[in-house]
């Protein structure tokens, strides 16, 4: 555990809590892509199956459980409790365009051809692209509430901090997880355009982020 990894995990947790509380407090999931949230729940489910097979640390186990519970709770809020506010019209990204290639790649490129390893690889690849329905929705409607942009900022920051963690781990312990690193770089690149808009429009401006 190093400072980049810890900051990354905290950033990830903050992002998920921001989104959950936004929906909970406002009793609305307007502007939120339910599809992205289902994909993230799928990411955590397929990655954390090792909860049943290995014990890493209490921290590791607790964080995994928290991520799982919060991701399913968020999906529940969007599709059940506050489904009346769900904007299915604009949440029209075709997720099969992500799931099919990601599944295929997980079978082709993995550390071991076992069910758990293929599912772990699937989760790493899927996480890299899971935000696309949300970014697509923002592009389609042309705007995002500032609280939604804070969520996206922390979610993007998390993987960027993991990149620093991987550089650190490579130099200190020779650790190099090729699948995670390559996917993490791709994932972070997806947020770069958003980071730019976030700094120039949300932080320097006020209220909503609207696209030109």
């Amino acid at each position: 555990m190093n400072i980049f990894r810890l900051a990354g995990d905290v950033s990830h947790l903050v992002a998920i809590i921001i989104l959950f509380l936004k929906i909970w407090k406002s009793k609305s999931c307007a502007g939120i892509s339910g599809k992205s949230q289902v994909l993230f729940a799928l990411v955590f489910t397929s990655r954390y199956l090792d909860l049943f097979t290995v014990f890493i640390s209490a921290y590791n186990t607790i964080m995994k459980l928290v991520f799982l519970v919060l991701s399913y709770a968020t999906v529940y809020l969007i599709y059940m409790r506050f489904r009346g506010s769900y904007d299915s019209e604009n949440d029209s990204f075709r997720v099969e365009f992500l799931l099919v290639p990601v599944t295929g790649l997980a079978f082709l490129e993995n550390y071991a051809f076992t069910p758990l390893e293929i599912l772990w690889t699937f989760s790493i690849f899927l996480e890299a692209v899971a935000i696309m329905p949300q970014l697509f929705m923002i592009t389609k409607t042309g705007e995002a509430e500032s609280i939604t942009t804070h969520y996206l900022f922390f979610l993007g920051l998390y993987r960027a901090l993991y990149l620093a963690n991987w550089v650190w781990r490579y130099h200190t312990e020779g650790f190099f997880d090729q699948i995670a690193v390559v996917s993490g770089v791709v994932q972070t690149i997806f947020y770069c355009d958003f980071f730019y808009l976030y700094v120039t429009r949300v932080l320097r401006g006020s209220g909503k982020m609207s696209l030109p």
């Binding site: 090792d50 550390y111 090729q178």
Partner: peptide, 10 residues
């Protein structure tokens, strides 16, 4: 490629 199992990151 480098093998890292079990995965100790989140």
């Amino acid at each position: 490629h480098a093998l890292k199992i079990p995965h100790d990151e989140l």
